[in-house]
């Protein structure tokens, strides 16, 4: 249980901010002022000084809407339009998504939003069985959502090994984008998104240990190879997962 990650992208009236909250920790958000300090500053005049609070708890997080007039939306970017509405003055609404985009009303053209990642969600192992309580089962300590885009990216990266187990090169980011294009959830997947999924897998889900001395470019390749190597070694991705990928013949020729 490592907690959650809150990311405020650049351009919400301030520079980008990333906060890591351990279980039980809180972060306030809003316009802020000398008298009302906030951890996440949203420099927009439509936002209250203290607009709300995020509280990391259990394997998820809670959103308190401290505005007395505006509802906030929490969208699941991978949920095909799935969202929650948190009404004004609602305290501690539990948020079930692993990925969330919190959208606050704004008069600007682009909505005011920030992201929250909850990588601690736990899934039972697919082969788990047993008559006893699931609570006391031995399981893989890193559970991945096999319906998430990051898992598709991981399977695509591991595919060459799973198909013929020859030491081939790990697919490049453009190759992954091309490979997944036929998947309904990945029609608009960008190379940049693939890179973020890879970072999320390596840094937040699998917490891969990479040597610090490698140069930046090597680091990215090293990370890609390390993710694939460990996912295969510890059975996180297996042959059966190939069924999640679009049929190979749907791939454009010349890949």
């Amino acid at each position: 249980m490592s907690g959650i990650l809150v990311h405020l992208p650049e351009g919400n009236g301030d520079e980008a901010v990333t906060l890591r909250l351990g279980p039980g920790e809180r972060a306030r958000f809003g316009r802020g002022s000398a008298g009302t300090p906030v951890e996440l500053r949203l420099g927009d005049e439509t936002v209250s000084r203290l607009a709300g609070e995020i509280h990391a708890t259990d394997d998820h997080w809670q959103l308190s809407n401290l505005s007395s007039t505006h509802a906030y939306l929490v969208e699941n970017p991978e949920g095909a339009g799935e969202y929650l509405r948190v009404p004004p003055r609602r305290i501690g609404a539990p948020i079930p998504f692993e990925f969330s985009r919190v959208v606050l009303p704004s008069r600007r053209e682009t909505p005011l939003c920030f992201q929250v990642f909850a990588p601690d969600h736990v899934y039972l192992d697919p082969h788990a069985r047993g008559a006893g309580s699931w609570e006391s089962r031995t399981m893989t300590a890193y559970s991945l959502d096999e319906t998430a885009t990051y898992f598709l990216v991981l399977v695509a990266l591991c595919e060459p090994w799973l198909r013929d187990r020859s030491p081939a090169a790990v697919p490049t980011t453009p190759q992954v984008v091309a490979r997944l294009r036929g998947h309904p959830a990945c029609a608009r997947l960008t190379p940049r998104a693939v890179s973020s999924h890879l970072d999320y897998l390596a840094d937040e889900k699998l917490r891969i240990d990479l040597p610090d001395d490698a140069a930046r470019a090597d680091r990215r390749n090293g990370k890609r190879e390390a993710v694939v190597g460990l996912a295969l070694k510890f059975g996180i991705v297996r042959e059966e997962h190939l069924a999640l990928l679009p049929r190979p013949d749907a791939v454009e020729p010349g890949r």
């Binding site: 907690g3 351990g22 279980p23 039980g24 708890t57 394997d59 736990v122």
Partner: peptide, 10 residues
């Protein structure tokens, strides 16, 4: 749940 207890231990 075990995850909630894991978070509490953390």
């Amino acid at each position: 749940t075990p995850t909630a207890r894991g978070a509490a231990a953390q």
